[in-house]
Design a protein around this nucleic acid. Structure first.
Lengths: 212, 212
DNA sequence: CTCATCTATTATGTTTACAAATTAAAAATC
DNA sequence: GATTTTTAATTTGTAAACATAATAGATGAG
């Protein structure tokens, strides 16, 4: 497959729609339907779906068919644990070598977050939240780790929050925690940064489990 | 795609051959060639390859084509770091809740390892080595973590397996470290277990980097 | 009305065919 | 003899066609 093939385009497009919750969990993705929607042949869609299956973003139905993977409550807990393992691990790698420029970028994300909350752009704010965490993982300097992080369904974890108006209340707290993490990292106080982050994960898990 | 489709069979078969080094890194996988070899149509093979691409076991060539992924030296280092993040993270989750039965299973694996070394079954011993680490991750009780672990390290172990005639010397040390880890976990001395494991990773990285 | 059976429709599995691109080989030029 | 040009082959990209299996709807029996 070439990177500019129709199958690749279909792959990127379907993927984007799933990650941005435009296609909800448990939806069955029908080949013909998407072929028409994207204006490509059924085989191109089929390849896209197969690739997403490999990425573990879809699952096979018992009697064939591709379905968008969903998050069961048990998985929500596991993903929170996984986030802790990956993000705290990343922070431990990052905190010794972070530059001034990198701190500024993180602060910029915090500012964006606060601004969007203030103006009522809650989806935008959640994007900024995700970006904050992903950027921290990036600053570990380990590409494999970043890759694993991206492919670990943590995005789904976040996206589920988008759907709920519930999580809006604790936005101020989220903002405060992000800034707390930055401050702790600047002062090389790893334990402090860790505990702030753990706290945030715990809140996220609790919120998600409350959503039906 | 159904789980018993020809495409699924092709997928499993090609995957197995890659993971057992019957298909070396950087090999180009030609659709027709494998179609004939496996007795299925080209499209079935194509789907299998696309799925393996999604699993990150293959990469796309600049001008199309599927190639078995290989490990560059820089990646070996990153994977060592990633192993530390994942395996130490798993150990932290596991060490509080491990049962007597689980300890016995780990010890059994160590015994198997020692026996195979003694009798000259070095590939078998490496399998046992992999199993030891994977079992520890399993005992974290977190399936997502196990899944991430499996999908991020097999290639490394794998390449190690191929060129394994070199690393025979430090088998005794590997065995000792494994038993040291078990002992430390039994006594709930997490730091001790961590340092023993880190030591092993460092040795593994050094060995791999020595291989041309 | 309810359940079972049959039928039509839909969706997927599989193969084949052809077009486009890439690679390898042969021929021609300098 | 080396280097370009042309030609042939291989290989992949794309679409279409047919076969098989799953689903939903209609029909009929009880």
């Amino acid at each position: 497959m070439k990177v500019d093939s129709l199958a690749s385009k279909a792959f990127l497009e379907i993927r984007r729609k799933i990650l941005s919750s435009q296609v909800p969990p448990n939806t069955r993705l029908k080949e013909d339907e998407w072929a028409k929607k994207l204006g490509v042949s059924r085989m191109a869609v089929r390849e896209a779906l197969t690739r997403l299956l490999g990425e573990d973003m879809l699952v096979l139905g018992e009697k064939g068919g591709y379905y968008v993977k969903s998050l069961l409550p048990a998985e929500i807990h596991e993903i929170r644990e996984l986030r802790e393992v990956l993000e705290l691990g990343a922070m431990r790698l990052a905190y010794k070598k972070m530059t001034k420029d990198q701190f500024e970028k993180l602060e910029k994300i915090c500012d964006d977050y606060a601004a969007m909350i203030k103006n009522g752009y809650f989806n935008g704010a959640l994007e900024a939240d995700m970006k904050f965490h992903e950027t921290l993982v990036e600053y570990s300097g380990n590409k494999k780790l970043l890759q694993v992080y991206r492919s670990s369904h943590i995005p789904l974890f976040h996206q589920k929050l988008v759907k709920s108006q519930i999580g809006i209340d604790d936005n101020e707290q989220t903002d405060a925690e992000h800034r707390q993490i930055i401050k702790a990292l600047k002062e090389k106080k790893l334990e402090l940064a860790e505990s702030a982050m753990k706290k945030q994960f715990a809140r996220g898990e609790a919120t998600l489990l409350d959503i039906p």
